[in-house]
Design a protein around this nucleic acid. Structure first.
Lengths: 241, 241
DNA sequence: ACCTGAACACCGTTCAAGT
DNA sequence: ACCTGAACACCGTTCAAGT
């Protein structure tokens, strides 16, 4: 408690939507979803709630704007190292999102919510589009475009979100290997009768690299995507009888 | 407004954790995450907040218990029609979750949260385990068990969640095809320069069957899972150069 | 046009007190 | 052991009033 937040704000600096969104991101980063409060926001910006409501419709819109800002920055990084395969392009976008969610764990929930509330609005549309284009470039037949793209996006968001959540379960400074060790031990103590699989998989958790694990999942889905339209593989012909 | 909730409660019936969880599920179903309130709960059960806190530690625990109850019911349905392939088994579990989330949309957020907060606790562990066993039965090499299983689980939760959210975007009685039509049209009106892919995929959205689409995604991942360990396919050997 | 800040209707949670 | 209900510290949001 009594954590001094910076008072550096020149109170003369004009209030703007951007400044509000920036402060919102800072609060979310510092204390998660619960940290974004109109009281905290007014204190940090040294104004009253009315001032904020003049620039922003409500808390929901503010959350959306914060999400937009962070994701847009993450997707914009990519410079133009020209010759890349569609797979590499997909991995780059996926890793960009993975790292953004890792830095801003609140993004995971927010993106899922926003993605489902209005898929064609704002950021989520850009994510869908950028993955979709590569699916298309991969030579996937048009019938499978939608399935393949949304499959990938769901995996990316889900896996990245879980990783971020794992990272924050304990304090920010807990040793990663120490934490994974604890998880692994917890799994190993499960009832052997009820959880044989989870127990067997326990040490795979212990020493896995986050990025590697994440990319392995991407490749898994990509393998499925490309295998589907090879001779003998149709969407309606499941992988085995 | 002024929606009459049932007053049928015999006030003499003893308060119990089960009865509280049951009421919580009803409130969540009726009005979503925001509908679960200690005031609403006390009214429905005709008690005070103190009584509820005697049976339940806090709101988080109550949400967890509600999630547990609903998912356990969904996974328990499966009778023993004996001979099934692992794929069929996976599809059955996936569809069970899909339908449960469709009936109780709040489950999506809740499961993701719970899944990441403590993967080894309660329901999420059971989901992971039941999918994992089939992955194992599929002959996937042990190295890929964890990746394959969590990939599938993420897809299932993500896709089911999005479907449920879509279903509730408009009122519960809006025609499905009418809604999909609106989405499709919205996509078609996107900027052709920025969103060529999304526009191209717009009519695939218009006439898709939810279950079919969902299962196609499952098969896509399953194809990847099984293809990985065929001759020539290793986890570290991405689907194309 | 932009900002102030008191006020409103909520929320989760606690706790002395009852039975 | 189980329940009551007033009270506390918080929310998001509004709005008359100022500049």
């Amino acid at each position: 408690m009594a954590t001094r937040t910076r008072r550096s704000q020149r109170r003369t600096e004009a209030l703007s939507r951007e400044r509000i969104v920036g402060a919102a991101v800072e609060l979310l980063d510092a204390a998660g979803e619960g940290g974004l409060t109109f009281r905290a926001l007014t204190e940090r910006l040294s104004t009253g709630p009315g001032a904020i409501y003049w620039h922003v419709a409500n808390k929901g819109e503010l959350l959306g704007a914060a999400t937009d800002a962070v994701v847009a920055a993450a997707l914009a990084i990519e410079p133009d190292k020209s010759p890349k395969t569609p797979q590499d392009e997909i991995r780059a976008v996926a890793l960009g999102l993975f790292d953004a969610i890792d830095e801003h764990p609140w993004l995971a929930t927010q993106l899922s919510t926003q993605f489902s509330r209005s898929p064609w609005g704002s950021v989520t549309a850009r994510i869908f589009e950028s993955i979709g284009r590569q699916i298309c470039a991969l030579g996937v037949p048009e019938d499978n475009w939608f399935t393949a793209t949304s499959g990938l996006v769901h995996y990316i968001l889900g896996a990245a979100g879980q990783n971020a959540a794992n990272a924050r379960v304990l304090g920010p400074d807990v040793d990663r290997t120490e934490f994974l060790d604890a998880v692994s031990r917890a799994w190993e103590e499960l009832d052997p009768g009820d959880y044989p699989f989870t127990r067997a998989v326990a040490d795979q958790v212990r020493d896995h690299d986050d990025h590697e694990q994440f990319l392995a999942g991407i490749d898994l889905v990509l393998t499925g995507v490309t295998a589907l339209h090879l001779p003998g593989g149709q969407a309606d012909t499941p992988p085995a009888a």
